[in-house]
């Protein structure tokens, strides 16, 4: 079943239009990666889908329901969570408080979920009473993922989860992303690290100049000559 779909989405900032009609489709429990050069509109696409930017034309469908133009809060309630690229934790709050904020809209007892999520990230769990600002870059990224999982989302939008991480951390983050998918969450991520991310993706999209350029399964894009030349360094 199609979990999330963007149809011919047009969006941008102020007078500048960045997306000129982009479409993507995410099936249940899939990882979908969006790659493309700087300025292609990858982050803009995630923000528009999540309702952080107004969708000027086109539609966003979530679980078959039209959610175009809904606010981020509505999206969160419907089961879509978003992890920004940078500054994605609350630095003066402790690790545990960060997770509580992830569960802000839950009125039920979220403690069991918190323990479950923390168990997924042992590094972070050890430091649950530390302020998030004191964590390392990799740990912050883990905490950001953990925060987004607190609401048991059906779809997770990740904006460059591996950006500015050490190589061994990148590997770890991608491993965690695979784990999350296995637990039944569909994932859409924007990535610079095309090779690693396509390896674990079911589908990939290549954006350029605010339009769809290529799409296919993760492997087919990895094998594609154009993708190889442009984004995989030969």
């Amino acid at each position: 079943m199609t979990m999330l779909e963007a149809r011919e989405v047009v969006s941008g900032y102020g007078e500048v239009e960045i997306l000129h009609g982009v479409s993507i489709k995410v099936e249940e429990e899939q990882i979908v990666t969006i790659i493309g050069p700087n300025g292609a509109g990858k982050s803009t696409l995630l923000k528009t889908v999540f309702g952080l930017l107004p969708c000027r034309r086109g539609r966003v469908l979530f679980g078959g329901e039209d959610v175009t133009g809904q606010s981020p809060q509505t999206m969160v309630r419907k089961g879509m969570c978003y992890v920004p690229q940078s500054e994605n934790v609350f630095p003066t709050l402790t690790v545990q408080e960060n997770l509580e904020m992830g569960a802000f809209i839950r009125r039920d007892n979220y403690r069991p979920k918190m323990e479950e999520v923390l168990a997924l990230f042992p590094d972070v769990m050890e430091r649950r009473h530390t302020r998030a600002g004191k964590l390392s870059g990799g740990q912050r990224q883990m905490l950001a993922l953990a925060r987004a999982l607190m609401l048991e989302p059906r779809v997770l939008l990740l904006d460059e989860p591996s950006a500015s991480l050490a190589p061994n951390m990148v590997e770890l983050v991608f491993a965690k992303i695979s784990d999350i998918r296995r637990s039944g969450v569909a994932i859409v991520m924007v990535e610079q690290n095309a090779r690693e991310s396509l390896k674990l993706s079911n589908r990939g999209y290549v954006l350029a100049m605010g339009e769809n350029r290529l799409e296919g399964t993760g492997e087919s894009l990895l094998d594609s000559e154009e993708v190889g030349r442009l984004y995989l360094g030969g």
Partner: peptide
Amino acid sequence: TRIGKAMRAMSDNLELARVSGIN
């Protein structure tokens, strides 16, 4: 309290507070 922590969260990072579903 929940609302107090949300206040601190919003003071830290308004945008992240919004995407976390804090009103």
